[in-house]
Structure formats: C-alpha cells, structure tokens
Nucleic acid binder design. Structure first.
Length: 877
DNA sequence: GACGCCACGC
DNA sequence: GACGTACGTGGCGTCA
C-alpha cells in the first residue's frame, strides 16, 4: 500500500501566516500570530491529506551554495521583523509537540530539502504534497507530486498537478525554471533578462522548449529589441536559471522513513496550546481543561546570606529590591537578591538595611548594578534611607527601547522572549486581585533570586542589541538618567489643597443632585443617568429621539451624539452638564482625594517610562497628565495643586507647537520652516496658504479647520478622523488633506519618504534613534496597512518631541543642582514641565528653564517655550 | 473580574 | 472595496 508524504516549507508558511494575521499576542506579551496561522494550516492539511509521513523544512542561516554563484542572491530583502523571528523557536516547539519531524541543513534552503525528499519519494512511488507559498516550487510537480500554493490567506490553497500548470502557464513543470531564467524573480533578487516578463518568457519557452534552446536560436526570435536583450544577457539568464533550480541531490542526513507521522498526542500538544493562549483550538480539537503548565525553569541554587561579604557585593551585579508588585510609594521592602559572578544570593531586608557594607555598596557610583525598573528600586531604597548610585543597566528600559511594542513590564516575558529560564509571573507569585498577598519566605527567596538571575543573563544580549541599533546613547545618556530624575519627582510629589478640593466636591454633589432630579422629571422616570444602557432606552425609546449611532451593545450616547440632539429636547443639555460634572466629581475630586498621602497631603504619581509606542511617558495612580484644562469649570481643579511650601509658586513651562516644529525640521519644508522662523501663528499661516488668502482675510472658521489639519498631521489621524473632528464629510476631509499637502510639498515628500523607509527597513526612528517597528505596513489588509502608514508618518514627529522634552528634563535636573537652586521639577505633561519654586527664585528659574528647554536639541527652526507662574497650577496659565 | 462605554489630556 | 481608524488612564455599569 502506498505512502502519503506531506512536505512543508516552514519559512514560507511562517511568513505567510505572520503577514496574513494581525499581531496577536498571548497574556505573556509573546507574539503568536505566525504560530497560530501555522497551526491552523497544519491542522487543515493533516485533516485533508491524512499523511503517514510529514516533514517541515526550514532555511538554515543566511547564506547558501547559491550565494557562491551570485553574491546578491536574495539581496535587498527586508530584515525579518523581530515580532516574527521570535516566533520561529515557538514554531519548532509546536512541531515537536505535534510529533512532526523538522529539518534544516546548513548551506541549503528549505526548497532543496523538499526537492530532494520529493524526488526520493517519487522514486518509491509515494504520493507527495508540497505546501509552500513559493511559486518556484512548481518545478517539482510530477504525476505523483502535487504542489499546494497558499493563496491570499494561509488555509486557502491551490493544488498544482501537471494539468493545472499546463492550464495556467501552458508549460511543463520543468519549464517553470526556464521561465524564471528569462523573467527573473524580484523577491529573490534573481535578475533574469531585463525587459522580459512572464508573458514574453512563456511565449519564448513555448516556442523553443527550453532556455538553452531559446539562446541557441536567438536569430529566430521575433523583435529586434528582444534579440538584443537576449544576446546581451545570455550569461545572466543561464545563471538565473541555475539559481532558480532546486537542488534535488542535497546531502540530507535523514531518510524518508524518518519522517513518519502517526498523529499527535493531545497530552503533549494541548499544554503547549494553553501556554500560547490557543484556547479555541483546544476546544476545537476536543481537549479537556488541561493543567496549568509552567514554562521550563532551570533548577535553582542560591545562598541565604548571613554575613555580607565582598563576594556578595562583587560588581557588576544584578540587584532586586523586592516590593509588592503595585505602587512602590510607601511600600515596604520584602527582600533583596543579588546575582554576580561569584554566585546567587538572597539577603533579608533587615540584614541588608542594617549593614554598613551594603549601604556603602548601594551608594557607590563605581559599583555597577544591573536592575529591572531602576526607578522602583531607587524609590524603595530611598524609603530605607539609602541613596542608589551606580545603576549602569536597566533591563526594563533596554527592552522597551529595543522594541516598545513588546511588553517590558515583566521580567518573565522578556526572559521568555530571549529563551532564558524565566522567573514566574508576578501574578503567579503574589496572586491576583483580592487574593494578592506576599508569598511565604521560601517562595519569595526563589522568586527574587530567579529575577536577579534573569537580569544578569539578559544584560549582555540587550546591551548588544542596543549597540547594534545605535541606541546605546539614547539608553545611557537619556533614558537611564531620566529614570532617576523621574524617581525624584515622584518621591517629592505635588502638594494638594485638600480643603479646596473637598469644597469643590461638595458644590458639585449638590448641583448633581438637582440635575438628577430635573433629568428624571423631564424623562418622567427615575433611572441611572450614568448607565449608557438605561440612558439609551430613555432617550431613544421612551422619548423617541432619533438614533444617531449604535454601538455593539446598543445605542451610543456619547457627546457627539448628544450634541446633535441638543435642540430636540431640553433634557439633553442637562444630561451633558450632568456628565461633565459627574466626570469631575468621580475622577478628579473623589479620584484624587483617594490617593492623597494622608500626612504630607501630597500626591505621588508614577510615570511609566516603558510603555507608550511613541516614547512619551504615561502617568498612573493618579494620572496627572489628564487634569482638565479645556473647560473653565474643570480647569478649576488645578486650583487644588499648590506649592509645598509657604511663599513658593507654581511655574508651568510648555513648548509652543513642538511637534510642528519637529515636522518642519524633519521635512525641511520651506513654507513651514518660514512660519516658525518668523514666529508666525502656525495655524493662521496654514490657513493663509491652504486657502490662498492674506493674513487679514483668515476667518476663525478657516483657522479652526487649519488647526484641525495640523492636529491631524501631528497625531496621524485619517481623513475619517478629520471628518469627525470638523463635522464634515469624509470626502471634504480628504480633499482638505490633499490641499494641505500641496501647500506644504516638503511635508508631502517627507510622508512618502518615511512610509517607504518603514516598508524597507520595517521600522521608523526618531532623531535620537528611538524605534517603532511596523510589521503591518506590508499587510494586504487595507486597514492595517493604512494604520501602519499613518503611524510611520506620525511616530518620528511625536517621538522626537518626546526625545526633546526628556532631554530637557535630564538637563534641567543637572542645571538646578549646578546652580544650587531650591526649585523642584514636579510633573511632565508631554510638552510641558511643572515646577515649584520660592518666589524670589522665580525669575532665575524662568531664565534657566527657557535656556535649557529651548536649547535641548538644536533644530533648523527655533524651539519656543511659554512660561507662567502663580500661586496654584490654575494660576500658572 | 473582564469588558464595554464614555471622557479627560496631549 | 476593504468597516475602523492618534496615544494614554480611569470611572462606572453590566454580565458572568
């Protein structure tokens, strides 16, 4: 009885799967879209073909014997996105879990392995199916060998037998290579004969039979130009054919019998699926709930330190100062772990904090420490009276800079991505939600030491990555010092006027109660106004107002919907006010009061330095980067933010139009640069140029539209987004953007250049080499691709602005020390810095702030800073 | 406890 | 034509 063999081109299918699916990741932040696509494809093939032998072939390394023929073979190819390359080890593990043989051979491509095996199988009269996305493989087709080519997706395939090849190309399978010799292949950088495409190639091969025959009978080819091309590129054509020819005699170290496959074992496969988060697949394949699997961890040995010796404090060392995983302000240290070349150590908190040697080591700049989230360590130690110095590496920040799209907030995820023995996830050690609590001592020791080991192991590869990316300077001179500046700001905190806040709360509550009664009366029914569901029922069913927009779950009741109903019913106005006041009361009054430190009456936010895709900071518990300002009523909240000392002031300094200035610099657009060099109002200038009017003729409507377009440019919004913000049609918005780009040709040029750059190298960069990878920029899905394109345009602008203010912050911290000033930096709000300062120092601070912020980075247009001071944050306007 | 809706800032 | 569209954080309601 005949055997059935399936041969899979691993690299080709992995690529297809990666680009066909959105970037999924599992709960550990590991990307899984290619693995997932590969799995579904595999399951489908196994189901349809029911093979008794299966092999997946991979390319090994970068160079092959083909490079000896032609060094530029496969040249000009885009680097594999890191989001994909990190999935290859997972795909190998997947195949092992399936019990499917995989193979790669140095110096050969997957094609050659497949060609060789399919030849052997053919000789044995086996039936063979080859699965690939590569048309070159069609040359392998015989009566017994079918080549299945993936079409658009990954599970959609075309099966080629000799008849189908004849139908599609009017050629035999062997003649496919002759065709390639003539037409070349851009994706593999095979030159072929310039000017000869698929049509001409097929015509010639049909007429003469083979490439060699064509070249022998060039005189009989019709067309003078074509004759000339063929004569000139004779050798190149022969070489191209050779490159495209699959080697069917590769020296494989496995036999057909080694590829036998007898079905998968759920016991082995499902735990792996579970780890990847493929729950739907387990269900589909009828797997029962599987026990939680842990990632493979190495055995651990460490010393519980009783005497702190020189060995324990040998440097460089990885240092963990463990606190509970959430806020570190006021958190107690649970224990300390150190890993260095002499060993792995756990030190109890009491021993460490009472040791003079330990203090000396922590505070010594020359003793190098590697950490994870140094800001957290700095704050924790400071609360124990220790001042951390000598941090030379922060794994969290390094990982974030290398690829901000990969989660960097857990050591476990980073270790897994680097195939190192990982520590447990924080939630696994501490429990989630209500169950959160410190683990027992043994578990704590193991966890902290494992984390220190992971840091120690990660330092070298991450450092290497930073250097390869030319990001070491960004890391060492900007982000690392910034983490300590942020630590100081967070620790210092912002003083809050509790009485003021409580008073505002009281007034709001009173108004809300009245409003609520009014709304219920107008509706004729009591209901929860905060419930979109109930509100929707009242407005659109009971009162019969026209539905504007639906959400997944029902009627939309968002602001823009309500505003369109405003003249239809007097209840709307009251609901809008209720919403506005409710937001102020719950988020800003109640929310802030909840996090005020009871003794110091201060708020200590935490800045997340390793989160946003653009390089900006974010702020949590509480978020002090979204305190109201736009509406006067909300802005009053800022009156509660006051200096911490009597006679001090709040000073706010913000960059004027920093993103558009950055855009002017990057794009070198003459028009835009001129606007800033002449210190014009940039929105007015935009309106003048777009609408072709003089300054005096710019109406407020024109300026508003121009401002919205500028906003769109800075934030990378689409024509749809612009149409929403201006309440115009999508077509009008699209025309508008078009008009803008005509007016600023340098900007249009930049937009094209940066998108092309992103397509070629797979990422975009800021002026200070911050990176953002955009794998979806080559997606065939229009939405994903468009989004990636807008991101490519926007990230260098917003990211460079983030670089600039971060640099200003580091330099401000140095300047305040150098000048011996008392003023303190309190907050950063993306393009703005907030200080507190003794009244007599205000003038000096203004000089320093202006100089430092405006000189932070030299652009081809000036940077401009606006400053104001007052008794509260509100007054610093 | 997870998720959706809504709203605040840049 | 593509049906979802800057980045964040947080509060509330709903549903399990």
């Amino acid at each position: 009885m005949g055997h059935k063999l399936v041969l899979i081109d691993g690299n080709s299918i992995a690529y297809r799967a990666f680009f066909a699916l959105p970037l999924l990741n599992n709960d550990k932040g590991v990307y899984t879209n290619a693995v997932y696509g590969f799995t579904t494809m595999l399951l489908k093939i196994l189901e349809e073909e029911k093979p008794d032998h299966v092999l997946v072939a991979f390319d090994a390394g970068k160079t092959t014997f083909r490079h000896a023929t032609f060094t530029e073979y496969k040249g000009g190819r885009q680097k594999t996105p890191p989001e994909l390359s990190e999935q290859f080890p997972l795909i190998r593990q997947l195949l092992d879990a399936f019990g499917i043989k995989r193979y790669e051979l140095p110096n050969y491509e997957a094609d050659d392995i497949i060609g060789t095996l399919s030849g052997q199988a053919h000789d044995e009269k086996w039936k063979v199916t080859v699965i690939t996305g590569d048309k070159d493989m069609l040359q392998l087709v015989t009566d017994d060998v079918t080549v299945a080519l993936t079409k658009k997706g990954i599970t959609d395939i075309d099966r080629f037998d000799p008849a189908l090849i004849e139908e599609r190309y009017s050629l035999t399978p062997q003649q496919i290579i002759d065709m390639k010799g003539l037409m070349g292949d851009a994706s593999d950088n095979i030159p072929g004969v310039p000017g000869v495409g698929e049509k001409t190639a097929i015509k010639l091969i049909k007429q003469f039979g083979s490439l060699e025959a064509v070249l022998e009978h060039i005189q009989d080819v019709s067309g003078a130009k074509l004759k000339e091309k063929l004569t000139e590129n004779r050798e190149q054509a022969l070489m191209s054919k050779q490159l495209a020819t699959i080697e069917c005699q590769a020296p494989l170290e496995l036999s057909l019998q080694d590829t036998s496959y007898s079905g998968y074992d759920g016991e082995r496969l499902f735990p792996f699926f579970k780890e990847l988060g493929f729950h739907s697949l387990i269900e589909r394949l009828g797997g029962e709930a599987v026990a939680e699997v842990k990632v493979e961890q190495e055995a651990l040995s460490f010393e519980e330190v009783e005497d702190i010796t020189e060995d324990v404090l040998a440097s460089p060392a990885a240092l963990i100062v463990e606190t509970m995983p959430e806020t570190y302000h006021g958190a107690e240290t649970l224990g300390i772990a150190i890993v260095n070349e002499t060993g792995n150590y756990y030190i109890s908190r009491d021993l460490a904090f009472s040791s003079a040697l330990f203090k000396e080591w922590i505070e010594n700049e020359d003793k190098e420490k590697f950490v994870f989230d140094g800001k957290r360590v700095y704050v924790a130690l400071q609360q124990a009276g220790l001042s951390l110095h000598g941090v030379s590496f922060d794994v969290m920040i390094a990982s974030y800079l290398l690829n901000p799209s990969e989660s960097s907030d857990e050591l476990a995820s980073i270790a897994i991505r680097h195939h190192l023995s990982p520590p447990d996830h924080e939630d696994a050690v501490y429990g989630k939600g209500a169950k959160r609590k410190a683990p027992d001592v043994q578990a704590l020791m193991e966890h902290t030491v494992r984390k220190a080991k992971a840091i120690y192991a990660l330092q070298a590869p991450l450092l290497k990555g930073l250097k390869e990316n030319e990001q070491y300077d960004l890391f060492a001179s900007l982000e690392l010092p910034l983490s300590l500046v942020l630590a100081k700001m967070e620790t210092l905190g912002v003083k809050i006027d509790l009485e003021r806040l409580r008073q505002m709360g009281k007034e709001l509550t009173a108004t809300l109660i009245t409003l609520e009664a009014d709304i219920h009366a107008l509706a004729g029914v009591a209901f929860n106004i905060n419930s979109p569901k109930q509100l929707g029922e009242v407005l659109f069913e009971k009162l019969g107002l026209p539905v504007q927009k639906k959400t997944k779950t029902g009627y939309s009741t968002s602001v823009d919907v309500l505003e369109k109903l405003e003249n239809k019913h007097e209840i709307i106005e009251k609901i809008l006010l209720y919403r506005q006041l409710g937001k102020l009361s719950s988020t800003y009054i109640e929310g802030l009061l909840k996090v005020v430190h009871p003794e110091s009456k201060k708020i200590h936010t935490r800045f997340n330095q390793a989160l946003t895709q653009t390089g900006r900071l974010s702020s949590t518990e509480p978020n002090l980067q979204n305190i109201p300002i736009r509406l006067e009523l909300g802005r009053k909240i800022r009156e509660a933010f006051i200096p911490s000392k009597e006679g001090w002031k709040i000073l706010a300094a913000d960059y004027s139009q920093i993103e558009l200035r950055v855009l002017a610099h990057i794009s070198q657009d003459e028009n835009l640069m001129e606007a800033f060099k002449k210190e014009m109002d940039v929105h007015t200038k935009t309106a003048m140029d777009v609408f072709h009017v003089e300054q005096e003729e710019v109406t407020s409507q024109m300026r508003r539209h121009a401002k919205a377009v500028n906003f769109g440019i800075v934030y990378g919004i689409s024509d749809y987004g612009l149409s929403q913000s201006l309440n115009i049609t999508r077509k009008e918005a699209s025309d508008f953007i078009h008009q803008y780009l005509q007016t600023f040709p340098g900007v249009e040029e930049y937009m094209k250049r940066i998108v092309s750059e992103a397509k070629h190298q797979g990422y975009v960069s800021t002026l200070l080499h911050r990176r953002r990878y955009l794998p979806e920029i080559t997606s065939r899905n229009f939405n994903l691709r468009s989004f990636a394109e807008r991101t490519a345009m926007n990230t260098p602008i917003q990211g460079t602005a983030a670089d600039i203010i971060k640099k200003a912050m580091v330099e401000m911290d140095e300047a305040l020390q150098r000048e011996g000033m008392q003023a303190k930096m309190l907050l950063q709000v993306h393009d703005e810095l907030i200080f507190e300062v003794p009244e007599e120092e205000v003038k000096k601070l203004q000089e320093v702030v202006q100089r430092v912020m405006e000189q932070a980075l030299a652009l081809d247009v000036p940077l401009k800073v606006d400053m104001n001071s007052g008794n509260t944050w509100y007054d610093a306007k």
